[in-house]
Structure formats: C-alpha cells, structure tokens
C-alpha cells in the first residue's frame, strides 16, 4: 500500500509489515498503525512512521547500541497484551529526540517501544526503573564507520 511519510514523501510499504499499537502512544493515542522504515545511509536508525498521519513519525534506534547495560523486566501484562511467548519475538526500540546542536540529542530510555515482531503488535511502555526520558545520546555512537 501507498502511504504519505514525513521524511520520504509518498512510499510503497508492505501491508503485512504494519505494526499495531493497540493503545497508540502517549500523546498520540489515536495513532495505532505504524511501519518501520530503514533510514537511508545509516543502519542504526529507523523511522517509526504512522501509516495514517504523515507528520507522526519518530526516529528510533536500538537502545542497546547506546547503552549495552540497559535492562528491564517486561511485565506479565505487557507480555499478555502483545502475546509474547519467547524473547526471540521481542524487539526493543527507543525514540530519539534530535536537537540542535546534535550533541544535545536525547534517547528515551524510560519509555521503550516493545514490539512482538512475530504478531506485529507493539506498545510503548513506561518503566518505573530509574531511566530518563531524556538520556543524553552518545552522539559519537550515532555515526557509522
């Protein structure tokens, strides 16, 4: 299907890859369908793009690339809602907030996005652990060699 994207104009995306956020995201409760678009030129990043609203798009990356020691427990409730049975089906992404200058950019470690890549269901969860929604991005790690 064809969708309008925020950064890449009109794009053809695979309907079978649409990720369902049953509850939307905090601040974007009505946005329930997204696709992940690979970021051209830098494989570390993807764009989480709403298939309905062009301007709703987030830059996302694996938090583990920036913080190897990042760990948290997934609640039973989330596992149930996303029908997660094995860890192999789970993909964790964090939303980045890019700022000028780039060194001021941050990554949201407090509210990671949990995706069941098998069932294509996802949720942005809010952790009670002591993580910041505005963790400074180690921007030197954002560049590809």
């Amino acid at each position: 299907m064809n969708i309008e994207t925020k950064y890449f104009g009109s794009m053809l995306v695979d309907e079978n890859k649409v990720i369902h956020f049953v509850k939307g995201l905090p601040g974007f409760q009505d946005e329930k369908k997204f696709v992940l678009i690979d970021f051209p030129d830098n494989p570390l990043f993807q764009i989480l793009q709403s298939t309905v609203t062009a301007y709703v798009a987030f830059v996302v990356a694996s938090p583990y690339h920036f913080r190897e020691e990042y760990t948290f427990d997934l609640g039973e409730q989330t596992k149930e809602e996303l029908t997660i049975k094995t860890a192999d089906h789970v993909k964790v992404l964090s939303i980045l907030t890019l700022r000028k200058p780039f060194e001021k950019s941050t990554i949201n470690l407090q509210a990671p996005i949990i995706i069941n890549v098998d069932a294509l269901k996802a949720q942005q969860i809010i952790l009670t652990d002591d993580f910041s929604a505005r963790t400074p991005l180690q921007t030197e790690k954002a560049r590809v060699e």
Partner: peptide
C-alpha cells in the same frame, strides 16, 4: 502511573515527533 511521569512521556513523544528534516541529516554518514 504518577501523572507527571505520563505527562513527561507525552511531552517527550511530541518533541520527538517534531524533528525537522534538516535535523535528520545529522544521522547521515559523513
């Protein structure tokens, strides 16, 4: 959730969705 935590996440999501195309260029290989 504590309300201020939820509001902070809402706010951060809005800020994140506000990224302009020129900021994205930071991520490109140099």
């Amino acid at each position: 959730h504590r309300k201020e935590v939820y509001l902070a996440i809402e706010q951060e999501n809005s800020a994140a969705a506000d990224t302009s195309l020129d900021l994205l260029n930071f991520l490109k290989k140099e």
